[in-house]
């Protein structure tokens, strides 16, 4: 059996916030490894640091201390430009609130990450349409987000998340704003993507969905408890 290859390696990671002379330890001395091809769920009670951890993993936020290695890159000292480029190359996001841009059509939303890398317009459109087909939303390519249901919007968000073929897809409560039917459909989609080789790290507070991951990680007061 092949030795698993680490994609993400956190070593003593800390993220503290200071407000009015009060320090909040959102993440404290956290060690975690996520291997390529893994499907990891992060769960825990509200305020335990799940979303902060996902932001740090997605390079949307910086660390206070510790080491963070992403696909061989030590990212702790990266500036805003380096983080943006790495994010654009390695990371896909799926948010609870979908976060589609209302002014852009469905296909334009999916193309968006490619527009920030040197990909020709034609290739952008082809790759975006392929991913929309992958999530069964190609027929809505020219619609605007406001014309779609919540489940459809989240499918589009998933397509946008995988359009760059990221090293890892980070999903923050992807079913939080969906009814049970649509939530189940999105979870199936994530299962399929993982089965196809996409590494997934999902934050959820729903035990049923957390159980679908190949590995469950539980967070409490900014530290791993399991």
């Amino acid at each position: 059996m092949d030795q698993p290859t680490p994609l993400i390696k956190l070593d003593g990671l800390c993220r503290y916030f200071k407000n009015d002379n009060m320090e909040t330890r959102a993440i404290h001395e956290l060690n975690l490894i996520i291997n390529k091809g893994e499907y990891v769920s992060i769960s825990g009670p509200s305020g335990c640091g799940k979303s902060t951890l996902l932001s740090v993993l997605g390079l949307l936020d910086t660390t206070t201390a510790g080491h963070y290695q992403l696909n061989g890159h030590q990212v702790a000292g990266f500036d805003v430009y380096q983080r943006a480029q790495l994010r654009n190359r390695e990371i896909g996001f799926v948010f609870q609130a979908f976060n589609l841009i209302g002014d852009l059509t469905v296909v334009e939303n999916v193309e968006l990450p490619l527009s920030y890398s040197r990909v020709s317009k034609k290739e952008r459109r082809e790759r975006a349409m392929a991913k929309l087909e992958r999530v069964n939303m190609a027929h809505r390519a020219n619609h605007f987000p406001s014309q779609l249901s919540g489940g459809q919007q989240q499918r589009v968000a998933v397509a946008r998340g995988i359009v760059i073929d990221p090293s890892i897809l980070l999903a923050d409560e992807p079913t939080g704003n969906l009814d049970s039917t649509n939530a189940a459909a999105i979870m199936e989609l994530l299962d399929e993507l993982n089965a196809d080789g996409t590494t997934i790290c999902m934050v959820t507070h729903d035990e049923r969905f957390a159980d679908r991951a190949s590995r469950k990680v539980e967070l409490m007061d900014g530290q791993l408890v399991r």
Binding site: L60, N88, N99, L100, I101, G102, P113
Partner: peptide, 16 residues
């Protein structure tokens, strides 16, 4: 602000 956040999350640099 949120749109800018989304763009940044998918790789837009400050210059962009």
């Amino acid at each position: 602000v949120r749109e800018i956040g989304i763009r940044m999350s998918v790789g837009a640099t400050p210059d962009v």
